[in-house]
Write a protein that binds this DNA or RNA. Sequence first.
RNA 1: GGUCCUGUAGCUCAAUUGGAUAGAGCAACUGCCUUCUAAGCAGUAGGUUUCAGGUUCGAUCCCUGACAGGAUCACCA
Length: 596
Amino acid sequence: MTIEQQIITGIKEAFQTLFSHELSAGELVLQPTRKEFEGTFTFVVFPFAKVTKMAPEASGIKIGEFLKANTKVVDDYNVVKGFLNISVGKNAWLGVFDSLYQNPDFGQLPKNGQKVMVEYSSPNTNKPLHLGHLRNNFLGYSVSEILKANGYDVIKANLVNDRGIHICKSMVAYRHFGNGETPESSGLKGDHLAGKYYVIFDQQYKKQIQELAEKGQTEDQAKKNAPLILEAQEMLLKWEANDPEVIALWKTMNTWVYAGFDATYKKMGVDFDKFYYESDTYLLGKDIVDEGLAKEVFFKKTDGSVWVDLSSEGLDEKLVLRGDGTSVYITQDMGTCDLKYQDFEFDKSVYVVGNEQDYHFDVLFKIMRKLGRPYGNGLYHLSYGMVDLPTGKMKSREGTVVDADDLMQEMIDTAESHTKELGKIDGFNAEEAAALYETLGMGALKYFLLKVDPKKRMLFNPKESIEFQGNTGPFIQYSHARIAAILRKADQLGVDFSTNGYAGMDKLENAERELIVVLYDFEKKIKAAGEEFSPSLLAQYLFDLAKEYNRFYADLSIFNESDPKVQSFRIALSAMTAKTIKAGMKLLGINVPDRM
RNA sequence: GGUCCUGUAGCUCAAUUGGAUAGAGCAACUGCCUUCUAAGCAGUAGGUUUCAGGUUCGAUCCCUGACAGGAUCACCA
């Protein structure tokens, strides 16, 4: 039984004995005591005034006395207004520490037998990844790792958008203006090369629109009649008809792009278990349309188009198949949904996609449930907010994007200059130094993007570089490196801190107890982060942990401590903290250095 | 216009889902390296939680209405 459970049980018994009233454990909640008061857990008495038929303060005292007399863990209490603050005894905390320290599976909750698919990244192959994709990828990766730590079997999936009119735009522009350029000949990464032609297309297209407008066409007409867009549309048809020449160009350019993406993913430190390609899946879903018609979930209009009516669920009528029998976005998504299930029979399927598609996924999930899919209730849209610049939204065609490759490199360079400025590079060879810069730069970037609640949109100011001090990745990494130095020294001195059992110690300093309390929270935070699909909870926690450790580090000396048991304990506490930081940061996709 | 999301210190973000005097970091100011890494620690200052009502022992959180910002409402993806 955890400490909280013991206290809750005690409170339950208190209510039975003192007020002859039965309460379920679910009605009783403890919250952390605020720093300015004595105690670790607080029980709020106000809501039970009716039951106790006494003033909250008086009932708080009675309950507190009862707990002190009848439980092993409660050592002391105090009541402020209706708040019963509970202090847990030294030995209970040392017992908690021992069990954490001895648990080989600390940070990994037991397998729950459930399978979850996490789809993230899902890039378009006509342009390189940008800052928005970084948030998506880091989120998707981190959530996957968090779910693993929660006991899920996780499949990371990437649905690559490798076809469609936007891809054809890059191809058309390349055919006209490429002059046979390749990644090798230009020195450009493949994805950047494709992106270059996507931009060129847009520029030339705009030029043509203007020319047509000058010849008297309206803007709408000009947009439809510009030769480049007509050519792109024609190319899309040829692609669908398997035209050998078009397919050859498509394959060539895609190969370039994938090589570029591979490099970017590697730098990001993300990976996938399964790739889906829209070129394979874009025809799926039409059989589901038939099924939906047969089940009368869908209906057909006179022009032959097929619709679903979701007005009873607060949404609209929504098209699921065009009148000419061709697919729309959602047709294909229904098909892919089933395909994924056929492949993996997941219990849950998470889509990491920006909040601009909230409505789309709302519709998709409602449809799949109406169709009676067994996995219908396991579908979840992890909707995250856009990353805005001070100037507003990023637009790839207007060149206002922050490129992912550039930004990662900048972060690594900044880490290098910071480190050199601080003169902390003694004893590193060139290779180690480079690895450290990458660890720190990427740590800063990932932490920056993950510490914010995913669903909130966030601001990135390119002019103010991402911090390395305060609530940042490097701060947490630094705390780890500090501990690593202590552990090295302990090893050198031959101090044994692997011993089991600190429960009998005479004294527990405040800084030590506070640290144990925070360590004790780790698995609860993993659970919460998993339930809410929110790495930010974990990021926030790791900052608190590092802060608490640094307080301990400043307050108490380790190697000047004369009592060997206390010294050993403080090293063990440090080792436990390092282990927790490392494991927690791993769940965010962030590495921690042993020296920095 | 309909629907959804957001609004907290100068800036970037928290607040255990209704609890105590709303907390951190950055920026500003003051201390602390002859002692385990100062990318650190301790402290000062900074707030009408956009506004107005309501619900109750108690509201940043729930309800109603304004105001501001964003997204979405395509036979686009």
